[in-house]
């Protein structure tokens, strides 16, 4: 695998908000997984605070 350039990871095609693009699909899956983990580990109020109250904070916490 040494022939693969690590920069490849930076340039995934697509846009964040378009689920039909590769990057959008990856982010969608990632959001689902991370929020499921958060829902099972955090308390309800913590979950609301960190992941539902502020979109920017949520995207950082994920």
């Amino acid at each position: 695998m040494s022939h693969v350039d690590p920069r490849l990871g930076e340039n995934i095609p697509g846009e964040r908000e378009k689920r039909k693009s590769p990057l959008g699909e990856l982010i969608w899956v990632y959001t689902a997984i991370s929020e499921a983990i958060a829902w099972t580990t955090m308390t309800n109020s913590m979950f609301r605070t960190y992941l539902r109250q502020d979109m920017l904070l949520a995207s950082l916490v994920r």
């Binding site: 693969v4 350039d5 690590p6 920069r7 990871g9 930076e10 995934i12 982010i27 990632y30 950082l60």
Partner: peptide, 17 residues
């Protein structure tokens, strides 16, 4: 924090290599 997908793919490539 900001681009988790991209950096994790990058790390995966680096770790495998």
């Amino acid at each position: 924090l900001t681009t988790p997908i991209q950096i994790s793919l990058q790390m995966f490539i680096l770790q495998v290599s």
